[in-house]
Design a protein around this nucleic acid. Structure first.
Lengths: 201, 201
DNA sequence: AGGATGGCATAGCGCTGCTATACCTACCGA
DNA sequence: TCGGTAGGTATAGCAGCGCTATGCCATCCT
C-alpha cells in the first residue's frame, strides 16, 4: 500500500460504480467500497464524496460515448454519416440505459466538459461536410448538430424511460434526423435515403 | 378529524410536495409531513410510501401541463397551433424545471396514464388538422405528433438540465417543429412562418 | 348504546452518506 | 542508514433518511 494516491483504486471505484449502475443495482457507499476492495474512505479521498463519484461516472459515460462515435469514419455521404451517428448514439444509450440517464442527470457539471464536446464534435463535422458538399443551405453546422442532438436525445430519453417502445427508435430516429437535414436544405428523397442507409447499417 | 381518509390531507401532501420540488427543497418524509400539518403516516395511508407520493406528484404535473395546453384554442392555421403548443409546452417546463424533470423521471408508470394522453392529444389533433387542411402528405398524425414531442422534449430537457442555455429554446424550438412538419410535406416557407408565429405569440 | 373499523400520532429499526480518529506506509533530509 | 513527516486508508460512530409496529381515538353499523 503506497503512500501516494493509488490510481488503481480510483479506477476500480469508477468501474465498479458504472457496472452497478448498468446492472441497476443500488450503488451505496458501503456496497461500492466492498466491491472495489477498499474502504468507504476511498470514495472521499478520490472524489470527495458520492456526488463527486457520480460526476466521475458520468464523465466515464461520455468518454465511452465519444469513443464509440469516433469509430465511425466519414464517408462521401455526410447525411448517411449523420444517420449512422444517430444509430450509434441510440445503440449506445439502449445498451446501457441507466448509465445514459445518469449521464444526463447532471450533464452540465462534468469534471472535464471537453469530453462532452468531443462526443458532439462528429455531429458538427457531419453537418459541416454536408454543407460543404452543397447539400445544405448556408446554415450554421452547430445549429444543425444541436437540432439533431436535441431530437435524438428526446427520442432516446423517451425510450429509455419506457414512455415509448424500443421500436420507436427505428420508426422516428431516422425520420427526425432527416427532417432536420431536409429543413436545412437537403433534397427530401435523397436525404431520407442517405439517413436511412446510415441507420440501417 | 373524520374516520374515512381525509382527501384534504392527500391533496395537501401533493400540493406541498409539488411546491417543495418546484422550490428545489429536499422533499423528505418528515419535512413534508410537517409542512402538510400531518404525521409521516399520512404519506403511507394515502400513497403507500414515498414512491407512491412521487407518482402522485408526477401525475399532478401532467394534469397541469394538459390543462395549460388545453387553453389553446385551435385556429385555421394548424401549423401555427402546433407552434403555439410547442411554446406553451416549453414555457410550462421552464417555469417549473424541477417538476418537469420529476415528471419524466418515471413518466411510464403514472397512476392514471390517461392524463398523459390528454396532454399529448392536442399535438395529434393539430397534426390531423394540418393534414386535413392539405398541408401535409398522407402521414400518420400520431407519428408527426410523436416526432414533435420527442424533439421538443429533448430540447427542453437539455435546457432544463443546463446543458443548453435558455436562448436555445427560441433558437431551435420553432426550427425543430417546422422541420418535422416540412419533412411531413408542408411548404417550407409557409410552415416556418406559421410555426414562428405560433411561438412568437 | 356499544363493538368494530380504520386513519393518524408516536417510537424505534435498519440503512444511508459522511466524518473524526488512529494507523501505517512511503518519502526525504541529515 | 535512519528518524521525522506527510498523506492515503481502515475503523467507529454520528445525524438523517424511509419505513413500520404499536396504540389511540373518532366514526360508522347493528
Amino acid at each position: 500500500m503506497p503512500k501516494p494516491a493509488d490510481p488503481a483504486v480510483r479506477a476500480a471505484l469508477i468501474e465498479h460504480a458504472a457496472t452497478m449502475v448498468v446492472a441497476r443495482e443500488p450503488v451505496t457507499l458501503r456496497a461500492l467500497a466492498t466491491r472495489a476492495g477498499t474502504s468507504t474512505m476511498g470514495v472521499y479521498t478520490h472524489f470527495g464524496g458520492m456526488p463527486g463519484l457520480w460526476a466521475a461516472v458520468r464523465q466515464e459515460g461520455f468518454v465511452r460515448l465519444a469513443a464509440r462515435l469516433a469509430t465511425l469514419a466519414p464517408t462521401d455521404d455526410p447525411a448517411g454519416d449523420l444517420g449512422a451517428l444517430g444509430a450509434a448514439y441510440a445503440a449506445n444509450a439502449l445498451e446501457n440505459p441507466a448509465l445514459y440517464r445518469l449521464m444526463f442527470d447532471a450533464a452540465a457539471d462534468l469534471p472535464d466538459p471537453d469530453v462532452a464536446d468531443a462526443a458532439f464534435a462528429p455531429l458538427v463535422d457531419g453537418a459541416r461536410r454536408a454543407r460543404e458538399a452543397g447539400r445544405l443551405d448556408d446554415v450554421d453546422p452547430v445549429d444543425v448538430a444541436t437540432r439533431l442532438w436535441a431530437g435524438g436525445h428526446g427520442l432516446v430519453m423517451l425510450v429509455v424511460t419506457d414512455v415509448l417502445p424500443r421500436a420507436a427508435l427505428t420508426a422516428h430516429g431516422p425520420a427526425l434526423n432527416a427532417a432536420v437535414l431536409i429543413a436545412a436544405g437537403d433534397d427530401p428523397q435523397r436525404c431520407t435515403a442517405s439517413v436511412q442507409r446510415g441507420w440501417g447499417g
